[in-house]
Structures are given as C-alpha cells and as structure tokens.
Design a protein around this nucleic acid. Structure first.
Length: 378
RNA sequence: GGGGAGGUAGCGAAGAGGCUAAACGCGGUAGACUGUAAAUCUAUUCCUUUGGGUUCGGCAGUUCGAAUCUGCCCCUCCCCA
C-alpha cells in the first residue's frame, strides 16, 4: 500500500481524537469509522443497498469462514470479495485469528500455526500465518489482517508473553508472503493489560512495518478501566501516521473511549447480534422490543433516528415481528442498530472537526443518560 | 347398545403410595450478548403478606401419608353395532 494511503485530516485540539481518510481501491473511508460485520460475506439480514443507505462505508468479512465455505477459489473466481458479494465498496477481512480464540475448545496452537476442528463437520484443519494471508490475497479485501492469537483474559503472564512474541513472529511471516500492493496489511497488537507486553508487541510490529495497526485482545471480559489501559498502552507505541483499529468494539461508550485515545476504526457484531435478539440502541437508552410495555406503543423505535425502520414502523409492529420470529423484524432491527452507530461516528467526525469532541462526548452521555438506564452502557 | 383408551399447571406431556408444588417441551415474563460455531444463551412462570395456602375431572373411601390404591359419578376420544 502507498505510504500516504491514510491521511489525518484534523486532530482534535483537546484529545487524541482525529478525523482521517483511508484511500482504498474501492473508495475512501472517513474515520473514525464503525464497520459492520458480515462474517459469511453478508451482514446478516441486510442487503448491500440497505447498508449503503444507512451510511456504511466499509464492511468486514472473515477468512476462516469464507475459507470453509465457499472456499477462497470460488471468491477469487468471481473476481474477489467485492465482486462476489456485489458490495462495490471497501471491505476488510479478519485473519481467522479471532477463531483461534472463539473456537478454543477445538484447537491446538503451536509455532507453525493452529489446528482447528472444523466447526461444521469436525474435520481437522490447519491455519498458519502464511495460509491466512494467502487466502486473504485471494479474497481480495482492501484491508487484511495478520494472523494472531487473541489470548483469553485473564491469562498467566508467561503464557501471554509467549503468545505475544509468537504473534509478532506470525505477523512477520505473514508480511513476507503478502503479495498484493492494493491490499493494506495490518499488524495486531496484543499483550492484554500489561504495558510492557503491549509496548513490545507494538514496537516489534512497527519495526516490521504495516499499513495500519490493530489493537486486539480488548473486550474479552475485562472491565472498562482495564480496556482503557489496554488501548492507552497500545496507541502510545504506535505511529500517528497510520490508522489504528480497535477490534471487536461496538458499545457506544467503548467507541467514545477509543476515539478519545486515538483509535480510528472499530468493528463489532454487537449491533446486529443484539438486534436479532430484540435489543436496540436508541436515543432513549437501550430497550428490548420484546417487552410488554411496547405492545400498544405506536411511536417509532427511536424518535431521533432517520433510518428506514424508524421512519416507517411502530414499536408495536416491530415487537410483533420479533415475537413471531419473522425475518423482516431481524432486518429492520439490525438496520436500526447499525444506523445508530454509523450516525454516532458521523457525529463524532463533525465534533472532532470543530474541536469539540470532549464536549460532544459529555453531551451525548448526558443527553441520552444511558448509563442510568443501562449501567453496562450498551 | 357392546368393546377399548383417557381426563395432570395457559397448552402439550411425564409421573403409578412418602425423595412431588409436580420432570420435560411449548407458550408467557424478564435478562444477557462486543475481530459472529449465536433466529443463541440464562432466569422465572399455581396463589402468597415468603410464614404459609390450595392443587393432578368430581365426590366418598383405604392409608401415618394419595396425582398415584378402591368405589361411585361426570366428561372426552377411538372401534364395533
């Protein structure tokens, strides 16, 4: 990737928040950005047209899952992920590293790579840093990830140290086989809440040299203060002229904390998953549309939202769709939750450009008062 | 008219003398979910002033003790006339 593929447009005068732009072959992405997750080459229940209509700039897909089905050759044959899915806009693939964590019960890690029991039929599969990059080269996303291990939290220090060092070696091996100049390759900083490990991880990755840097290993069960430390300990040792991506973050408060600390990119299944389960992020706090109190409620899901769902449907009807388990319900609810986060990042970019990010954060928290309604802050 | 099966919580359905306010499923009411093995998982669901109260079609019995055993009655379904 060209050295200036990422440009910082404006830095907030009172925090580390910044507005930037990623130049990719499939278009520009303005940061801070929230990236919806479409693991299997689709954001569950939503079409590309709907995603674009709510302001989605870039979406994620997953190497492990696409490798299993339909297979990277099928996607390469179609001309790459963007053509295969007809999402003619920027895309990012995760390396399969997270599956090392989430499929922990069926995997074995060694220096060479990871042996998984395929979650579909139990077949033994082997994924290595080289293999992951080679698959991602074929998938052809605009941004691809190094193959890492995301250790459980908490883990023993010795285990963490070995894991972090191995993840650095894996990153180097991945970079060595990376073929495509049109794909940005990110390294992933690990090290849990240990500053010396985060420092080591970040500095070693920077020595190798990547087009951007991810912060991995957050939101794996640690408390909020610990997550802030993890971000601080990572950003501190990363270059300012490269994008920083905090992986797996989708609660509004964690996004604020990340942006405040200099993070540019976020992705998360949270908005779509909780939507499918009836939970919605609204300007009035988090609600569960299944609840009886909405049975006769003819108001929109979120009166301050302009998404298709909020413009056209009542809570009463959305509750009905949820309860009868209709796909339209899952679609409309997913659409809204994504719009909520996309709008949030749009507003963040505006606030940063006006040097009022900290004020915006306070206004947002106060206005919506979500902490009072939902202590966990989703 | 003859023969057979059965009536258990909102529904379906286990249980065949004490470990049973009664398994399990559905339905109901809530909660969770953060680089998606997730249309998933968890709690709760007779009443209650949390001490207890009232239950397994009804009534009457047997028994220290009955949803479970006995008698009579009521009701459903199936087969044959």
């Amino acid at each position: 990737m060209k050295e200036n593929w990422f440009e910082v447009i404006h830095e907030d005068k009172k925090s580390k928040a910044r507005v930037g732009v990623l130049h990719t072959l499939h278009g520009d992405v303005f940061t801070p950005v929230f990236m919806p997750v479409g693991t299997q080459g689709t954001v569950k229940y939503l079409s590309n047209e709907e995603l674009k209509a709510i302001g989605s700039q870039i979406i994620l897909s997953n190497t492990y899952h696409l490798w299993l089905r339909p297979g990277e050759n099928v996607i390469e044959n179609a001309g790459g992920l963007q053509k295969f899915t007809n999402y003619n806009a920027p895309m990012l693939t995760d390396s399969g590293g997270f599956q090392v964590f989430s499929l922990a019960s069926t995997r074995k890690i060694n220096e060479e790579g990871v042996t998984f029991k395929n979650h579909l039929n139990g077949d033994l599969l082997f994924l290595s840093p080289e293999k992951s990059i080679q698959i991602q080269n074929k998938l052809g996303a605009d941004i691809i990830m190094s193959f890492d291990e995301c250790p459980a939290y908490p883990s023993e220090y010795d285990y963490l140290k070995n894991s972090v060092e191995r993840t650095v070696r894996w990153a180097k091996r991945g970079k060595e086989v990376h073929q495509r100049e049109d794909q940005a390759l990110f390294g992933i900083v690990q090290g849990a809440d240990k500053e010396e490990l985060r420092k080591y991880s970040a500095e070693e990755l920077v020595k190798i040299g990547f087009d951007g840097y991810s912060i991995g290993g957050t939101s794996v069960g640690e408390d909020k203060e610990t997550m802030k430390k993890m971000v601080d300990y990572s950003v501190k040792y990363l270059p300012k002229n490269k994008p920083i991506y905090q992986m797996g973050i989708g609660s509004y408060d964690a996004i604020f904390e990340g942006v405040l600390r200099g993070v540019d990119m976020f992705d998360c299944v949270l908005p779509t998953r909780i939507a499918r389960h009836g939970a919605l992020m609204t300007s009035q706090g988090r609600i569960n549309i299944r609840d009886k109190q909405y049975e006769y409620d003819l108001s929109p899901l979120d009166p301050e939202c302009n998404c298709e769902t909020c413009r056209n449907y009542t809570r009463s009807y959305l509750r009905h769709l949820y309860r009868v388990d209709e796909g339209l319900g899952k679609r409309l609810l997913s659409l809204h939750n994504l719009r909520f986060l996309l709008k949030l990042t749009e507003d963040m970019r505006k606030a940063i450009l006006e040097d009022r990010f900290i004020e915006f954060k306070e206004e947002f928290f106060n206005k919506y008062n979500l902490n009072k309604i939902n202590p966990k802050g989703f």
